[in-house]
Write a protein that binds this DNA or RNA. Structure first.
Length: 435
DNA sequence: CTAGGGTTAG
């Protein structure tokens, strides 16, 4: 008799869920119950890893129908399916069902829940499950801490991330490279990049070797601070330590040196992606286009944009936003407009960035009626923010449409848009609309 | 059965 669950598990790792399914179906139904649960669990996981999370859930339900009680591993696998499908409400129901059926949740269950809440950006829920874990006498392990820190990182809750980090030793859990990486990112996202760099240095003192993800986090941190020279030093250090850069680290580098004003250097790093025989993705191109924007190199930007189909890379909303904003900067409003309309023809939904950058470019060119019509179109799709109002009001002012400007201003204060961050124009004592 | 990284304007 072959160990079928092992085979199914390897199918999952290779994302061969169809094969996993047929192995399961092909197996005889006369296996001992314990073995068949293991088999089903392996299949659920295989489906989840093959991104067929719905099928995994279907299989989970079929276990119960075949009078086999799902065990804690079945529930964990099902929870992972929920996580993959971002179905956190459903996951909560599974958790409740599990308690009802007297299946004791273990650390895997809690870690899976915490990780799911990280994915759906619900850090309070992640925290609640971390606490729930303690109340059910399950000791948190390195996965619990790391997943929680990541959940806090996504929400820029750097203080919580650090306090979790500090709680690890009292719990006798050793931080590992993932702990450091998540914490460095949390500090960077919380605008504490210097602290993040301190942690990056501290990990080496604690004999945890930085890997490519650590370097990525450090590069992004230095980028936040505009420290582009330090980014170059990190690249030297990486090659000395034989940490191989990948597409993600190059993408981070392009953006980091660009933020330090070194847009040409950013473009060099963009070129090195292909030189290193690595794939470029939409983020690589978008980062390169951002460099072009900073350097006001719009012809070059059009060249990169034109090169995307050949690299089989589809632009997304970020890509278009960068281009629209670049044309705003160089004062080419008709180009902003044509890229904005280009989004629709590619079924890309314009977001608040797309609208605001377009309105700004119309405002700069005193195209008040375009600005107004964009503002109106925007209001039907996305929530205008303080900048949307400011640019549109400013456009009205430039076009001597002061009545329109005033009514927008009133609408803005009525809806409490942007709190106290009001338009400079409206505070200008020379402004005819208000004074 | 469980954990980490990269892209956008004013």
């Amino acid at each position: 008799m072959v160990r079928i669950s092992g085979k199914i598990t390897s199918c999952g790792k290779l994302a061969l869920w169809q094969r996993a399914c047929s192995l399961l179906v092909g197996a005889t139904a006369s296996l001992p119950r314990r073995r068949s649960v293991a088999k089903s669990n392996a299949t659920i996981t295989a489906m989840e890893q093959g991104r067929e999370w719905q099928l995994g859930l279907v299989l989970f339900h079929s276990i119960a129908k075949n009078q086999i009680n799902p065990d804690v591993i079945s529930f964990t696998a099902a929870l992972n399916c929920c996580g993959r499908g971002r179905q956190w409400h459903l996951a909560l129901e599974f958790y409740e069902a599990m308690l009802r059926e007297r299946v004791k949740p273990n650390s895997y269950v809690f870690n899976t829940m915490i990780s799911m809440f990280e994915k759906v950006r619900k850090w309070q829920h992640a925290l609640a499950f971390f606490t729930e874990m303690a109340s059910r006498q399950v000791q948190p392990d390195v996965f619990s801490f790391n997943s929680s820190i990541s959940a806090f990182e996504k929400a820029a809750q750097w203080w919580l991330a650090l306090s979790w980090f500090d709680t690890m030793s009292p719990h006798e859990v050793q931080p590992n490279v993932v702990t450091y990486n998540a914490s460095i990112s949390a500090l960077e996202k919380g605008s504490q990049w210097q602290r993040g760099i301190q942690l990056f240095k501290a990990m080496q003192m604690c004999h945890v070797s930085p890997d490519i993800v650590s370097y990525c986090a450090a590069i992004t941190s230095f980028g936040k601070g505009g420290e582009w020279q330090q980014v170059l030093l990190l690249h030297d250090e990486m090659s000395k330590r034989r940490v191989v850069p990948n597409m993600l680290s190059f993408n981070a580098t392009i953006s980091a040196v660009d933020k330090g004003g070194q847009w040409q250097l950013g473009l060099c790093f963009f070129n090195s992606i292909a030189q290193n025989k690595l794939q470029r993705d939409v983020i690589s191109f978008t980062a390169a286009l951002t460099c072009c924007g900073r350097g006001q190199q719009w012809q070059l930007a059009l060249h990169f944009f034109g090169a995307m189909p050949r690299a089989r890379v589809e632009p997304n909303a970020y890509t278009f936003n960068v281009i629209i904003s670049m044309f705003e900067k160089v004062g080419a409003w008709h180009h902003s407009l044509s890229f904005f309309t280009g989004m629709a023809s590619r079924q890309i939904q314009p977001d608040v960035f797309s609208f605001n950058s377009s309105i700004s470019s119309f405002e700069k060119a005193a195209q008040w009626s375009l600005a107004l019509s964009w503002f109106d179109a925007m209001s039907e799709k996305v929530q205008p923010d303080v900048y949307s109002f400011n640019s549109t009001i400013s456009a009205c002012e430039k076009g001597s449409q002061w009545q329109q400007g005033i009514s927008l201003f009133e609408a803005m204060t009525k809806h409490k848009v942007g709190g106290f961050a009001l338009s400079q124009d409206l505070y200008n004592p020379d402004h005819p609309c208000i004074y």
